[in-house]
């Protein structure tokens, strides 16, 4: 597979490590009232997507950036690649 890195262009997937659902960016607030339940869902519940899915890939043998890759799990077609840091900020994460 080839991942079109937003800063470096197309690179072989062999340079990357796969993590999984980009929902892992959405780490719950530890002080929420139902924090335990939210963390349970965060840690254990995943959608088993057949189709386009946002996934986390890490360019370990490269610039060490985490990427959010939108990949169709049925065809491997990759339609979007973003820096996970940008995605995280857009989803409201900060410090």
């Amino acid at each position: 597979m080839i991942i079109n890195h937003p800063l470096l262009g197309p690179r072989d997937a062999a340079e990357f490590i796969y993590l999984g659902d980009a929902a892992l960016i959405d780490r719950p607030d530890w002080q929420a009232e139902d924090a335990a339940e939210q963390f349970h869902a965060y840690g254990y519940l995943r959608d088993n997507v057949a189709g386009p899915m946002q996934e986390l890939w890490y360019h370990e043998q490269g610039d060490r950036s985490w990427l959010v890759v939108t990949r169709d799990t049925l065809t491997h077609e990759i339609t979007n690649v973003e820096l996970a840091r940008d995605v995280a900020r857009n989803r409201g994460r900060s410090v």
Binding site: L8, A14, E60, Q61, G62, D63
Partner: peptide, 10 residues
Amino acid sequence: IARTVMEHMG
């Protein structure tokens, strides 16, 4: 320049 992997070595 490129940072990559060769023969399993960064």
